[in-house]
Design a protein around this nucleic acid. Sequence first.
DNA 1: TTCTGTGAAGCCGTTCACAGCC
DNA 2: GGCTGTGAACGGCTTCACAGAA
Lengths: 209, 209
Amino acid sequence: MELSDNTIERICKVFGYLNPLERGAAEFVSSKELAKAIGTTEYTVRKDISLLGVCGYTRKGYAVKSLKEELGRKLNLNKKRKACIVGLGRLGSALLDYEKFQEDGFEIVAGFDCSINKLERIKTPIDVFSDNDIKEIVAQRSIEVGILAVPSQRAQDVADKLIGAGVKGILNFSNHKVIVPENVIYLNLDFTNALRFIAAKIMINQNQN
Amino acid sequence: MELSDNTIERICKVFGYLNPLERGAAEFVSSKELAKAIGTTEYTVRKDISLLGVCGYTRKGYAVKSLKEELGRKLNLNKKRKACIVGLGRLGSALLDYEKFQEDGFEIVAGFDCSINKLERIKTPIDVFSDNDIKEIVAQRSIEVGILAVPSQRAQDVADKLIGAGVKGILNFSNHKVIVPENVIYLNLDFTNALRFIAAKIMINQNQN
DNA sequence: TTCTGTGAAGCCGTTCACAGCC
DNA sequence: GGCTGTGAACGGCTTCACAGAA
């Protein structure tokens, strides 16, 4: 079963779209509707889903409840996964309380910062610790994913600590590339780059007219 | 000149990497180094750059300063672009003061929120307004990009307002898809999805061993 | 020798067309 | 008729191989 990153990403989006559908008590959903919701074609949705070995019903579409269950099982999105945030500046502390994480399969179980000052002043129900405790806490609480919200020059160092402590994935919000070993999953969400991309495409768009 | 989204994204990353290089007074940079920095192959970097019609020097690589200048010119990344943030909850207000934006070609020139309460309490050097003023302020300050940090059920509504007021690009941090007209650039950064993606790949990784 | 520039080859993902099913 | 499932065709991006230049 070879899944491309694109396929995984789309399935994750589909999975996210099924949540509200399920709450709305929709029983079935067609590939066409899913395609529209996540911004792709119905062909691609069907192929993606069938690549995972999940089946729908002819003439009806996919059963919302069981589709979510199955996709979740195949991609391991059903069980809650534990994550921590390193760097409790404005962005980091906003992420600490980002409700969507909790609501959707993830649990932030610790925050870290190198400044004792910040640790004392911060107000959050989540436990916060010094960077020095990363190793201990990550192991103790079986944290699987580390979220980096530190200044870019510290990103690599903190990532190394997290990986040394056993996390299997890194989500990097800083705008500096981090090198990780092959067995660690790495994803970089660089806001500045996103804005650059938009700026570039705005311009290309205008030139075409 | 047909540039794929992938190419644009990579060039944006290259552009970002050139900043510190330039400050470090490096004169030349090879495609190999760039490739390593942004996580791709040297072939791809060379092709991307040559697609833009920018040339390097044989045996030396690309001249850092002029490469940055040229890439910036082709993708319109040199001039400062104005953006605003709608939704001043924890994430939104963190983004308001996100230094990296300012430092790198973007200028946040306004914040909006529908709660008068929040507007009064927030502490930031940036001007903040009620959602009702979007139309007026966006036009007045020639804001080109709108950043959405509102609860997902309000995302489409706010996006419509922004587009009606003339923004040309939307960066959406909420986890709800927004429909935009063809001439508006749209990008969604969904944190929850990013974590799902990581969770899925962690699992696939483990299954392979 | 070392690095860029680029046509050609190869590969991979998406699209298509159509069979199957209710 | 409407929707899924899937092998085959298509297209586009990446990789390669090699020419050119200092």
